[in-house]
Design a protein around this nucleic acid. Structure first.
Lengths: 235, 235
DNA sequence: GCCCTGTATGACAGTATTATGACAATTGGA
DNA sequence: TCCAATTGTCATAATACTGTCATACAGGGC
């Protein structure tokens, strides 16, 4: 029996994007494009989680959450545009369980949904994620995400935000090929519609910086001809 | 089996904030928005710790603590607004184990809760409080939190309260990056909704004062472009 | 080898982010 | 109350980062 998720956003584009990624994970999706419908749906059906846009015409996310909370405790993940972040606290006040700032990466949303569902299903078991320090270690490359620091052969490499994000994303899924479109969506986030070749340039700059310190580290970023790039561990 | 904490405060905003941070640490949370419910809950269930607001309608924290203490010795951390501090002594009289003044930093609360739980679990073993001395020592920088004094290359640096708090906060989590929002929440406390750039200005002033005495000490405060700041130890 | 397609590179202009300095508001004592 | 220190905000200057494009280069099929 798959878990049911309600997606609420007035932008169809966002709904479809989330839908696609969540269906792929096996969730059953329902969509609503306004707060009123969302509230009705959420009250009459039992969803396991609700992805709720903050800003919507007629009834906004805060109001939906507030009213829903008088009846049910369905987990809510608020979607909020940058700049609306001041509503963040207000969102938590009315009982949102998590917050995602737009534009998000679809993969990130999937991870958060999973986290919420896990949390609400196994309230007994605690994962001490305090100790889960976020460090990726390979022979010639270490990425410490807490410190936001990259070491190639023990030498610090200064990366720009995009270079860092790109490397982190690739390194988190070693040996998996991503095409440029996918990378733009994940690293540049969904609202970026730029030149695919932008990725190439960033890969170039990233390799350049790594290569200066450690050719081996630089070589971990492979070009897959005709497809895209991957972070290769073996060999 | 996770440890159970009861949060008692009439302000929902405060409850949610504490809830969020404590859940993240793996604690199991129960909330109450008034003293009567709190007392009932605390008597019928066994909590490992109670976060108790001092000022509440109907039955205040003092009264709750007093009555609870006739039956149980559950550790109590009192939450008290600035200006209510006169009740502090009275609070300790009725058996509060610790005191936190509002507005607090969420992280601070987590630390105190951990401390209380640690203390109550190892009542047999006494840790020599010499080791608990709150002094942070680095090559070019010493922060003596007992004396509230900062030495850069053995020279005393006069910092304003905010500068001091900022430095202390950063230095307590070396190599970890904090964004401006997080710093505002932790150093400026949860009720501050100001300009994010306020952080920049304080960092500037802090660096200025440190730099005058020890450029090395000043350089420990790193800007992480696109993210925020961190206190860097290595290199 | 030759061509076609895809990738790497280098330069540049535009954009975003941070540092700084000045000022007003606030606070905390004397 | 007034003064001095501290604090928050803002405009501006100084930096750093990005995306795009034109061009050079490389891989693969024939």
């Amino acid at each position: 029996m798959s878990e049911r998720i309600l997606i609420v956003d007035d932008e169809e584009r966002i709904r479809k994007l989330l839908n696609m990624y969540l269906v792929r994970e096996g969730y059953e999706i329902t969509e609503a494009d306004n707060g009123e419908d969302a509230l009705d749906l959420a009250l009459e059906q039992d969803f396991h989680c609700i992805l709720l846009d903050l800003m919507m015409p007629r009834m906004d996310g805060i109001e939906v959450a507030k009213r829903l909370r008088t009846q049910k405790s369905t987990p809510i993940i608020m979607l909020t545009a940058k700049g609306e972040e001041n509503n963040r606290v207000e969102g938590f006040e009315v009982g949102a369980d998590d917050y995602i700032v737009k534009p998000f990466s679809p993969r990130e949303v999937v991870l958060r949904v999973k986290a919420i569902l896990r949390r609400s299903s196994e309230t007994t078991f605690i994962e001490a994620d305090a100790s889960t320090k976020d460090v990726i270690v390979y022979d010639h490359l270490v990425i410490d995400n807490d410190a936001h620091r990259v070491l190639a052969d023990d030498v610090k490499v200064n990366l720009t935000p995009k270079e860092y994000e790109l490397l982190l994303f690739l390194a988190r899924s070693p040996d998996k090929v991503f095409d440029r479109e996918e990378l733009l969506r994940e690293v540049w986030h969904y609202d970026f519609y730029g030149d695919l070749r932008t990725v190439d340039t960033h890969v170039k700059r990233l390799r350049e910086k790594l290569n200066k310190v450690s050719p081996e580290a630089s070589d971990m970023i492979h070009t897959v001809w005709g497809i895209g790039y991957k972070f290769e561990v073996n060999e």
